[in-house]
Amino acid sequence: MAKIKQGKKDVDSYTIRGTNKVVRVGDTVLMRPSDTDNQPYVARVESMETDGRGSVRVKVRWYYRPEEAKGGRRQFHGAKELFRSDHLDMQSAHTIEGKCIVHSFKDYTKLNNVGAEDFFCRFDYNAASGAFSPDRVAVYCKCEMPYNPDDLMVQCDACKDW
């Protein structure tokens, strides 16, 4: 007798193993890297499905850190800055370590306390071409150096403006 293959089914949520934290579509999560020396990856959950045997997979949209993108980290990139990419992937839900929040640049600069799970994004990133959108960033002083939110109220070395 032939086995009937169980179909995939969309699910609404997933509880992170060993916790009571529930992940839903639209949440931003920390994903365990294969090399434990690396920082967790950050991704937005786009969809979830189960194979009927209890295995849950998530479709994620990756966020890139500046050093992972073409051009690398620049002086104006904040320590918690990420780029929202067009790179989508299917991953086992078991690789989700926790939840995090990716704020808009404006909302991030208004935070009183930045926690370990707080990040910000001001660029979209095309992983294949290395192009950014917008391709320019707002500048805040005469020397036209973009604002780094980690440097609060500092005097610009180049133009001496605050």
Rank of each mutant, 00 (worst) to 15 (best):
F83K: 13
S47Q: 12
G54F: 04
G72C: 06
S47N: 14
D89F: 08
H103R: 04
R74N: 07
Y147Q: 07
D135I: 00
D107W: 03
V42N: 05
K106Y: 09
L152A: 12
Q39I: 08
T50W: 01
Y140V: 09
Y108F: 14
K110I: 00
E68H: 07
H77I: 01
P134Y: 06
P40A: 06
R44S: 15
K110P: 00
F120G: 05
A116F: 11
C121V: 05
I96Q: 00
C100A: 13
Y108W: 01
K142C: 08
A138S: 10
D86N: 15
R136C: 12
M90W: 15
R74M: 12
N38I: 05
P40W: 09
N148E: 04
N126A: 05
R136K: 11
L152C: 06
E46V: 15
G52V: 05
Y125L: 11
V42E: 03
I96G: 02
P134H: 08
R65H: 03
T36S: 14
E117A: 12
V58P: 00
R74A: 10
H94M: 13
F119K: 06
S104A: 11
R73P: 00
K142F: 08
E68N: 09
C143H: 06
R53V: 06
N113C: 10
C100P: 09
P40N: 11
A138W: 07
G98V: 02
F83P: 11
D86C: 02
G54N: 02
P146Y: 03
T109S: 11
H87K: 14
A69P: 06
C121R: 02
L88V: 14
S92F: 10
Y108L: 02
